[in-house]
Design a protein around this nucleic acid. Structure first.
Lengths: 104, 104
DNA sequence: TGATTATATTTTGATACTTTTATATCCAAA
DNA sequence: TTTGGATATAAAAGTATCAAAATATAATCA
């Protein structure tokens, strides 16, 4: 019972695991909101805290998760840290998620 | 400190919650693999079990999660149930996830 | 009817995740 | 060199998720 004209999605289990872990880091309301607040810009932690609206500690921990998965990267300037989205295609991903899941 | 030319990603908290819940249902290795096995086809539970490789009960639980979030839909034929991906754009999403997160 | 195949649901114990609170570190300005 | 703002880390407590096992439902067949 083989597929006839199936597009290749992800075939290696290793890749499936890696992708699922990265997606998991995005699949939390606060972390998805962080991505939406960042957009294509560089934003300081304090500004993210103000926009997203939870404690600084909580934001910092969620930022660490996104950073550890490679979704975000940082630049330090004096005593402030600026976060931005590492790969601009991540924004396309968020837009597509919105199109598919938010237009009910 | 306002953004100047930021694209609108997801602005309503309600939409962010809905999107994050749907993504969360995909962000598990077995469930992502189920999507990859399905592709654009309709596949029976038993065939999914054979392809993905875990117990029938476990697959059924994961299918229920994807079904409840609207990612999958079903058709029953006699005593078998066939699953397919509800919205074909979900496949685009998986492809983009693969491109962004699996090409390191 | 009784047996068999296919799928779904419930329960349980373990593990992982999230939030909160408290504390620590880093850096610049005074 | 102390002070205060900004960020990170740690520990604790609450909550959610997971896989496995057992059980249940539903359709088919003998």
């Amino acid at each position: 019972m083989e597929a006839i004209a199936t597009k290749k999605l992800i075939d290696r289990d290793e890749d499936i695991l890696q992708a699922s872990m990265a997606i998991k880091s995005i699949a939390h309301p606060l972390r998805l909101k962080i991505l939406c607040v960042l957009g294509d810009q560089e934003v300081s932690v304090q500004d993210i805290v103000d926009d997203v609206g939870t404690s600084q500690s909580n934001i910092s921990q969620h930022l660490a998760i996104l950073r550890d998965k490679g979704v975000l990267c940082t630049r330090k300037d004096a005593n402030r840290v600026f976060y931005r989205i590492s790969d601009e295609r991540t924004l396309k991903l968020v837009e597509l998620m919105r199109d598919v899941f938010c237009t009910a």
